[in-house]
Design a protein around this nucleic acid. Structure first.
Length: 299
DNA sequence: CCCCAGGGCCATA
DNA sequence: TATGGCCATGGG
């Protein structure tokens, strides 16, 4: 294959800064589904059952995506482009959000300080749901440890330069597990039951991302998601913003969010749900982005 | 030892 | 509808 076929570019939108997006991905945690070194991301993608590996770098006004492993068919390049576009939320016009941000009293500093940060998404619905269940109630360090155990035990991987790059486990695989299989990985009984249940729904086709998208309204999507055992208010909102890219979601109950809002309001306690809603009011339609920028203040 | 982490279910009233 | 116990583990 000609080398040119294995590299493609995506035009960067206005208000985009690759390093700022990478900073959010990197933070202090050890994520097992991508690796970041210097100013590049290495991301394995399973596309129609084909194992691929991409390197993403910044080329001034474009994102450069190089295929490191896997045949560069047209379909694979298209899927990879789709994935990266969603991952970095490249299709979003952030001007309206920045307008609100710049005119907001205590938060206007964010427009410059976090300039170009995008809602870093988890395009895969199953992965997003599982990540939520894993992260429920526990600290993020332990959550990443649990995720790594899950991925390295039940996921497949591609080897590149003697390093393993893992794909998130298939729903069909996790659907066949017993609760005790996950308890061995330090999952609580509830988390194990939730994840296996969600895996079964996805594996048998009763839960599809397309179904959610078709609802068109955030409230209907939330209602559908909350029917799933293990999915409450926090998870439903998290999944809608991170997987479906809804911009009007607030991760109610999120301790990180509460901590950020508490600091900004100068409270010595966690804010009530009402106080959080009031705080978000000026950002109607852009709650998810404010949510993201508030998380950013924590790291 | 305590409490709390990017929650949610379930029992109880 | 609202509240409290519970879950697994690690860090402060």
């Amino acid at each position: 294959m000609a080398d040119s076929k294995s590299t493609f570019y995506l035009v960067e939108p206005d208000i985009f800064l690759f390093t700022e997006c990478l900073h959010f991905l990197d933070r202090d945690y050890d994520d097992c589904l991508y690796s970041i070194e210097d100013d590049r991301v290495i991301k394995p993608l399973l596309i129609d059952g084909v194992q691929t590996l991409f390197k993403i770098t910044d080329a001034s006004d474009r994102l450069k995506i190089e295929l490191l492993a896997g045949e560069p068919s047209k379909a694979i390049v298209e899927e990879a482009a789709r994935y990266v576009t969603d991952w970095f939320d490249l299709e979003r016009n952030l001007h309206p959000f920045y307008q609100l941000l710049e005119n907001h009293d205590p938060l206007s500093y964010m427009a410059a300080k976090y300039y170009g940060l995008r809602l870093m998404r988890i395009p895969d619905l199953f992965e997003a749901l599982c990540w939520c269940v894993v992260g429920q109630q526990i600290n993020l360090t332990f959550a990443h440890k649990l995720k790594r155990q899950l991925v390295e035990t039940y996921g497949t991987f591609i080897t590149y330069e003697s390093k393993r790059h893992y794909f998130f486990p298939e729903a069909e695989v996790l659907a066949g597990l017993a609760v005790d299989d996950l308890k061995e990985l330090q999952f609580s009984r509830q988390k194990a039951e939730y994840i296996i249940g969600i895996a079964k729904d996805v594996a048998d086709g009763s839960l599809k991302k397309q179904e959610l998208v078709a609802y068109d309204e955030t409230q209907k999507m939330l209602k559908r998601l909350k029917k799933i055992r293990g999915v409450g208010d926090w998870t439903a909102n998290y999944v809608l913003m991170k997987s479906l890219g809804r911009t009007d979601c607030i991760t109610h109950g999120d301790t990180g969010l509460q901590s950020a809002v508490s600091q900004i309001l100068g409270l010595d306690r966690k804010p009530t749900r009402k106080e959080v809603e009031t705080f978000f009011e000026p950002f109607a339609g852009w709650e998810s982005y404010l949510n993201m920028y508030l998380w950013r203040t924590l790291s």
